[in-house]
Simulated scan of single mutants.
Amino acid sequence: MNFPEGTVSVHLANRLARIEFYHPASNSFPTALLDALKTAIDDLSKNPQVTTVILQSQGEGAFCAGASFDELLSITDTDAGAAFFSGFAGVVNAMRKSKQIFIGRIHGKAVGGGVGLAAACDYCFATAQSAIKLSELAIGIGPFVIEPAVSKKIGKNAFTALSLAAHEWKSAAWAFQHGLYDEVCENAEELDQKVAAFAQRVSEYNPEALVEMKQIFWEGTEHWDSLLSARAAISGKLVLSDFTKAALSQFKKK
């Protein structure tokens, strides 16, 4: 799928699928791209032949810079704000409800919603360059929508530290230590080798066993449809504040 705002592509090979997204602004997400990613995940979920999905982005820079600042600045009412942040909620919920195992290929830095995508994966590979940051408080909002997924992975205390240090990058080693990343590779070449080998191995497991395990991985999240929707409404309200508008304008000037 190609859009003026970027692309989402899906590649199939037997039981294994690869979803790749791209946006010229450091793989950030406007609404159309979030909707396309959710559609790709939902479509794959209907394919009983696929048991394993690799989630990755294009390029050698950032894995994902989170929300599109241009679109955040264009929001003029709470309904539009809630709708935008519901895009991230939809992707996280689609990943957790999918019967397929999601493996993250995190090749570079992840910010905000990018951290949420990594957290929504069932297993994550990263490189030593894959630092993370939750910068939302620095622009007057907060990582409300992705918090459940991130806290599920790294725990509430680490989430608190990460969200309050909104101007600070946490290293890939920190993310590994706290459970966001399962393996950290030295470079992209090693990353690709390990992702490919691991995904192939997982895809060859008993499909019925994988479905049952996926349910266990995400036990206790059945209420997330309503929870993430409510969280999106909070962000949708805060994005209209004078603080946030001014902060976003300053970030764009950098």
Results as ranks from 00 to 15, higher is better:
Ala120Asp: 01
Glu204Ser: 14
Glu5Thr: 13
Ala36Arg: 09
Lys194Met: 09
Ala158Glu: 09
Ala120Cys: 04
Phe84Ala: 12
Gly61Cys: 05
Ser226Arg: 12
Phe85Val: 09
Asn27Asp: 10
Lys153Pro: 03
Glu5Ala: 15
Ala233Ser: 11
Asp225Asn: 13
Ser86Pro: 09
Leu238Ser: 12
Lys38Gln: 15
Ile19Arg: 00
Pro148Thr: 11
Glu219Met: 14
Val111Glu: 02
Ala149Lys: 04
Ile106Ser: 04
Gly220Arg: 02
Ala118Thr: 03
Ala197Val: 02
Asp192Lys: 03
Ile103Lys: 01
Ala232Trp: 06
His107Met: 00
Val184Gly: 04
Gly108Asp: 00
Lys153Asp: 00
Pro4Gln: 01
Tyr22Arg: 11
Ala40Ile: 04
Phe69Lys: 13
Val184Asp: 02
Phe176Asp: 02
Gln49Thr: 15
Lys46Gly: 14
Leu44Tyr: 03
Ala166Tyr: 07
Ala83Gly: 09
His11Leu: 09
Phe159Glu: 07
Leu238Gly: 12
Ile41Leu: 08
Leu240Ala: 01
Glu147Tyr: 12
Leu37Pro: 03
Lys152Asp: 10
Glu136Trp: 10
Lys153Arg: 15
Gly112Val: 04
Gln58Met: 12
Ala118Gly: 01
His107Gly: 03
Phe88Ile: 08
Ile54Ala: 06
Leu228Glu: 10
Tyr22Leu: 10
Asn187Leu: 08
Gln49Val: 15
Val10Leu: 10
Leu180Asp: 05
Ala110Lys: 02
Gly66His: 09
Asp42Glu: 13
Thr160Trp: 08
Lys194Arg: 15
Ala173Val: 05
Ser28Ile: 06
Ala128Gly: 05
Ala17Leu: 00
Thr31Ala: 13
Ala89Arg: 04
Thr31Gln: 12
Asp122Lys: 04
Ala13Arg: 11
Leu228Asp: 10
Ala172Val: 11
Thr51Cys: 13
Asn93Asp: 13
Ala36Ile: 08
Thr76Ser: 14
Gly90Phe: 02
Gln193Leu: 15
Leu137Ala: 13
Ala158Pro: 09
Met95Tyr: 01
His223Ile: 15
Leu228Ala: 11
Leu16Ile: 05
Val145Gln: 10
Val50Asp: 07
Val195Asp: 03
Asp182Ser: 10
Glu212Asn: 13
Lys253Tyr: 01
Asp35Met: 11
Glu204Lys: 11
Glu204Arg: 11
Leu117His: 00
Phe84Val: 12
Ala82Thr: 15
Leu16Met: 06
Ile41Ala: 08
Gln215Glu: 13
Ala118Cys: 05
Glu222Phe: 05
Phe243Leu: 12
Val202Asp: 02
Ala233Thr: 08
Ala80His: 07
Ala40Met: 01
Ser45Val: 01
Ala131Phe: 05
Ala118Met: 00
Trp169Pro: 08
Lys237Trp: 07
Val150Gly: 03
Thr76Gly: 07
Trp169Thr: 08
Val115Leu: 01
Ser98Pro: 05
Ala67Asn: 14
Ser45Glu: 06
Pro48Gln: 08
Leu210Thr: 10
Glu189Val: 15
Gly114Ser: 03
